[in-house]
Structures are given as C-alpha cells and as structure tokens.
C-alpha cells in the first residue's frame, strides 16, 4: 500500500492496466514524449512505446472518432482530451456515435473505450480550463460517466472503466491531481460502476456530491462536527451514470435532510436529477426541503482570483449551507 496523489493514481493505474492488457492504447494531444500537460501519462511512452502511447493531431473529433473505430475493431483505446472544456468538438462523436452504436446496431457492435478528461476549476484556468461537463454526458443513455474523488477510487473505477464494454467518460478533477493524496493498494481491484460510497457516516444531514466537491464536503463535515455539533453524512456518488439510486434514498431516509453539492453551474446540473429522484421516492422521509449548492448560472468560471473564488463551491460555503439546512 502506497500513499500517492490523485494524479499518480491515474498514472499507475494506466501503467498496471497496460501491462496486463495489450489491447490498451493511449493517445491524445501531448500525451507522448511530454507525458501530457499535467504529466499524467509521463513515462508511459518510454515503457510501452510509440505504438501504444501516441501523440495525436490537435483534433478532438478525430481523437474520439478514431477511438470508436479502434474499439470496435478489438482495441481498448483510452483517448485523452487535454481539458474537458475542449471535449465539445468531439461531442458529436461521443453523443451521436459512441453512445448509440450498441443500440442502433441492436447489440451487434459495442464501443469499449474510456475518454479521459481533466475537468473542474479553482486552478486559475478561467472560462476554458475550468468547466464541469458531467451533466451534458450524464443525460445520454449509452454512456457511463465516472468522477472519482480520491486516489483509491481512481484506481478501482479506472480499471472497471477499461474493462467495461461500453463508452466511459472518465472525468478527473484538475484541482485534485496534486492536492488530494491517499492510500492506494498495490494489487489490482475493481470498483463497480454505479456504486456510491458513504465517505463519512452521519445522522443529522446528508451531503450528496461527486468528484472534487466530495473532498470539500468532507472538510465541511469535519468543521460541522467540531464547531457546530452537527453530524453530517457524506455520500460520494462516484459515477453519475449509472447512478446508485438506492444509496441516495438510503442516506435520505437516514437523515431526512439533503444538501446536494456540485461544482457545475446550478441550472440543469446533475443535482437537479438527484433532487428529483429524492422528491419522487422519498418525499415523506424529508424533514426539510432539498437544497442544492452549486456554481452560479454564469457561462463559465472567470479568471481573476476574486471572481474565481466567488464562483467556486468551497468547504466554507458547504459548511454554511449545511448548517443552515441542519437548523431548518
């Protein structure tokens, strides 16, 4: 068992998986010699060669579109989109093609690929290097959308994503890359897609989140315990599609108060779906209205530190929203 960063966990998992499965290839912009702009794939080309770790032309539709063909023809491609903000040129390929190839061919063809993309803000990335894109893809049947919060989950979820027979959008938070550390077992393990994880037990209020904001929620929960005597449970969805509905309803029934926390802007964000599920299935278990804490409804995250900070969901904002709800 080693302690490593979130980023190292991505890299070491890729390495471990590539050693065991010769079908895996990685490509994208700058992923080869340079090891990616975040160094996630550093050293992989040296170990596996240019045949398996390739710099691609600067063309996202081409990266994903060719990965679809390669996956259908027996490889396990793991294309990288340099920033999730630049996934939209490939939106057509992901949504119109990858997601529905199994359905439209009546099960004749499948697309086992994992599109990795760093998402999220708070890293001075401004409008075009900060976005949370999960809601666009979570809306699409045929895709799976994975958003790990911890190095441990990165490993088990990435291995499962690679084994999966269907296209997976694997979203890694850029802020987590170097700031989040944790223990990661050496041996291979799988975390099933669609299994949420109670990251912290609590009794007064449930905080439901996914991706980086799970970590912020844990910080907030600690402060709630220490300073306010409020016991907050933190549920990490880990994958937004498939969605662990049972876990959402279980924590709702347990505490009766739910705060949904996400970094994407509020309206049409995935929190709306979580909220609807609770309202449909657990309304009479609620002791207070469902609350959402999310980014504001502006087109994207601004650059100036004051503006960026004002946009971001932070541990303090989560703490305040949770306390408010706990006292309802």
């Amino acid at each position: 068992m080693a302690v490593m960063t979130y980023l190292e966990s991505v890299r070491e998992t890729l390495r471990q998986e590539m050693r065991r499965d010769p079908r895996i290839i990685i490509y994208g912009e700058d992923v080869g010699v340079r090891g990616g702009v975040f160094r996630v794939t550093e050293g992989l080309q040296a170990e596996f060669g240019e045949e398996r770790v390739m710099d691609s032309p600067l063309a996202e539709a081409a990266i994903v579109g060719t990965a679809i063909g390669a996956a259908i023809n027996g490889l396990r491609p793991i294309p990288e989109i340099q920033f999730a903000d630049f996934i939209f040129p490939a939106f057509n390929q992901i949504v119109e093609e990858a997601a529905r190839i199994r359905y439209r061919s009546n099960g004749d063809f499948g697309v086992p690929m994992v599109v990795r993309a760093p998402y999220g803000g708070g890293i001075h990335g401004a409008l075009y290097h900060s976005q949370s894109v999960e809601a666009f893809f979570a809306h699409v049947p045929g895709l799976k959308v994975v958003m790990p919060a911890t190095p441990y989950d990165v490993k088990g979820l990435l291995a499962s994503s690679i084994e999966d027979e269907d296209p997976v959008i694997f979203l890694e938070h850029k802020g987590a890359y170097r700031s989040i550390r944790g223990e990661v077992p050496d041996e291979r393990y799988l975390i099933p897609l669609g299994s949420a994880d109670v990251k912290r037990q609590g009794t007064d209020i449930s905080i439901i989140s996914w991706g980086m904001t799970v970590n912020f929620s844990l910080t907030a929960a600690q402060k709630l315990e220490q300073e306010d005597g409020v016991s907050a449970e933190v549920l990490d969805l880990r994958t937004v599609r498939p969605l662990d509905v049972d876990a959402i309803l279980a924590t709702t029934k347990k505490t009766g108060k739910v705060l949904i926390v996400y970094e994407d802007n509020l309206t049409g964000g995935f929190g709306g779906e979580v909220s609807a599920i609770i309202a449909e299935h657990a309304l009479f278990d609620l002791d207070a209205p469902i609350r959402r804490l999310a980014g504001p409804d502006v087109p994207a995250m601004p650059y100036a530190p004051t503006l960026e900070h004002a946009f971001m969901v932070t541990p303090d904002k989560i703490h305040d929203a949770a306390l408010n709800l706990a006292r309802f």
């Binding site: 539709a61 579109g65 060719t66 679809i68 063909g69 996956a71 490889l75 390929q93 093609e97």
Partner: peptide, 8 residues
C-alpha cells in the same frame, strides 16, 4: 473517422 480507427 471510424474507418480510420478500424484501420488503426
């Protein structure tokens, strides 16, 4: 692009 991927 799919054809290119098959060929890849």
């Amino acid at each position: 692009l799919h054809a290119a991927g098959l060929a890849l």
